[in-house]
């Protein structure tokens, strides 16, 4: 007499970049922005139940305000499990401002809890002036600085031992520092801590820099996907 339609929710992992003016959008604001974008794109997305339903969206790893992101991850659930994933990317890009671009949609393989590291590029607009100092600074045995704890007070940590890998190079007028730092719910080191303590040491001119989070890795240093 009637056919019953079974809804199978499909999880979709969306990858996007956040650059230029979108650097100034905080994590909280990105969250609100994305709920509007998925509505605007008319995705058949799953809404939370309850009095005030809203699109179900989660983010793998918040990006600090001011950073660019080349590998940002957001998970949604869609109602139609046959929807071609590529189409979702196109739909989203057609309604997104130019500084936020989606580049892939996949079925999630790893769980967010498996995130272990993130990679960063920090580019100084310095005519190559900081490269040498930076090498000396990172070459030190210990880089002790204060980190804010979840409770709101500060504790001393040695960032040096947290740095999983680094590289310093000069490209044109700029010095680029690449870093691998712990990320995720267990241990999370913001590279700004390192830069701040570098500038504390480096009593010279202040050069502008931009931080880009280039990738997110799992605990085995493999790409998180």
């Amino acid at each position: 007499m009637f056919s019953e339609r079974v809804f199978v929710l499909k999880s979709v992992r969306l990858l996007f970049t956040k650059s230029a003016r979108a650097r100034f959008v905080s994590h909280l604001d990105i969250n609100r922005f994305m709920t509007r974008i998925v509505r605007k794109a008319k995705l058949d997305i799953w809404y939370t139940e309850g009095f005030n339903p809203h699109p179900y969206i989660t983010f793998a790893l918040p990006l600090p305000l001011g950073f660019e992101g080349k590998y940002e991850i957001m998970d949604i659930r869609i109602n139609d499990d046959n929807a071609p994933l590529g189409e979702i990317v196109d739909k989203l890009n057609s309604v997104c401002p130019p500084d936020i671009r989606f580049f892939d949609a996949v079925e999630p393989i790893k769980k967010v809890g498996e995130i272990g590291y993130a990679t960063y590029d920090i580019v100084f607009d310095d005519n190559g002036n900081v490269a040498q100092k930076l090498k000396e600074f990172i070459g030190k045995d210990k880089i002790v600085t204060k980190k804010r704890t979840k409770k709101g007070d500060y504790k001393e940590i040695d960032i040096k031992e947290k740095i999983k890998a680094f590289d310093i190079g000069v490209v044109g007028n700029e010095t680029k520092l690449s870093l691998v730092l712990p990320a995720g719910s267990d241990d999370n080191i913001n590279p700004a801590l390192l830069i701040d303590s570098f500038y504390n040491d480096f009593n010279d001119e202040y050069y502008c820099y931009t931080v880009t989070r280039t990738s997110i890795l799992d605990k085995n240093m493999e790409k998180f996907i």
Binding site: F24, K40, P97, D125, T210
Partner: peptide, 21 residues
């Protein structure tokens, strides 16, 4: 670059950054 660095030193830089939908 310099402008954006300065923006990061103030409250709610989103007030001045533009680029909205």
């Amino acid at each position: 670059k310099r402008f954006e660095q300065l923006l990061l030193s103030v409250q709610k830089p989103g007030r001045y950054s533009g680029g909205e939908i």
